[in-house]
């Protein structure tokens, strides 16, 4: 590539990355401004104020809410990996009666926005006495519609797996389940990684479901808590809200930057290639 072309590519990339980076920059720097300075056009606060970061924890049980989001997302991720890898493997590699029709049945889950089923789900969980608990936010994603995408990704991956490997395993005396656990799953690490990322982010971002299912502040999740930083009369506390948003975003960003290679390459190898 010519020198000029290279400079052009770098210039294009640098301009294009502004809208991706600026919001995060603005969020973090503004969170150190006093509330009255939020709308001043400064890229750097006049004086750093740690007060908003402190207020985040006094206005709401924010640490608790953070822990809620984290443990729910981790549990959902672990559960989905189990459910989806088993179902994906069965749909891809095992022959059983009704396989195709059942796959179509399961796929309907991909097509149903959660807003469609939220009212009946609310009634069902209420009948089970599970309103204002975290169970709806855990059970539905693991077994219901959100895990279908994960199953689909796993199926697409297992289909591309060469059959000879499994044949060899079977000749060694491994049964189906053994082949799955000892041969197929270890090879599926990239796809499992992608499933883990998708699932974690999905759970981490859930907004409508917590609003509907949870009503106690100590049980809230982060997205729900973020919209609740107001003064006693519901006037917005912008700087506190931005501090909380920063705290929500930064740790995940750090984990991402450290593990970005696995992150991105895992995603790229999901068999979503087509």
């Amino acid at each position: 590539m010519s020198r000029r072309a290279k400079i052009l590519v770098y210039a294009a990339l640098s301009v294009l990355c502004v809208p991706f980076v600026f919001p995060t920059w603005w969020m973090v720097t503004s969170s150190f401004k006093p509330n009255a300075d939020i709308f001043s056009a400064r890229l750097w606060p006049r004086h750093l104020s740690l007060q908003p970061w402190h207020d985040v924890f006094t206005l709401q049980p924010f640490a608790r809410q953070y822990a809620n989001s984290l443990y729910i997302a981790l549990l959902v991720t672990a559960g989905t990996m189990v459910v989806a890898s088993m179902a994906g493997y069965a749909f891809a590699r095992i022959r059983f009666r009704g396989q195709n029709i059942l796959f179509v049945v399961v796929l309907t889950g991909l097509l149903i926005p959660s807003e469609v089923t939220i009212v009946p789900l609310f009634r069902m969980f209420n009948a089970a006495g599970l309103i204002d608990t975290h169970w709806p936010l855990i059970l539905v994603p693991i077994f219901g519609a959100p895990s279908v995408l994960a199953t689909f990704i796993m199926r697409q991956f297992f289909i591309t797996l060469p059959g000879e490997l499994e044949e060899a395993a079977r000749l060694d005396g491994l049964g189906r389940a053994g082949t799955f656990r000892r041969v197929a799953l270890p090879l599926a690490r990239p796809a499992l990684g992608a499933v883990a990322i998708f699932t974690f982010l999905h759970s981490w971002n859930l907004y409508l479901e917590p609003i509907v299912f949870l009503s106690t502040k100590t049980k809230f999740t982060l997205p729900q808590a973020l919209t609740q930083f107001t003064d006693a009369y519901q006037g917005p506390l912008w700087n506190v809200q931005l501090s909380a948003a920063s705290m929500t975003a930064i740790p995940v960003l750090i984990v991402f930057v450290l593990a970005q290679r696995h992150f991105i390459e895992g995603l790229a190898q999901t068999g979503l290639k087509g």
Binding site: L75, A78, G79, M81, V82, V83, S85, A128, G129, L130, T133, W135, I138, L139, I142, R181, R182, L185, P186
Partner: peptide, 25 residues
């Protein structure tokens, strides 16, 4: 595959606990 086993155990325990929660005193 220890991770998978632990994950499976967590899910199982979770469902059991969920059932236990239903009956209030």
């Amino acid at each position: 595959m220890r991770v998978m086993n632990i994950a499976a155990a967590m899910v199982l325990l979770g469902s059991l606990a969920a059932c236990g929660d239903g009956s209030s005193s």
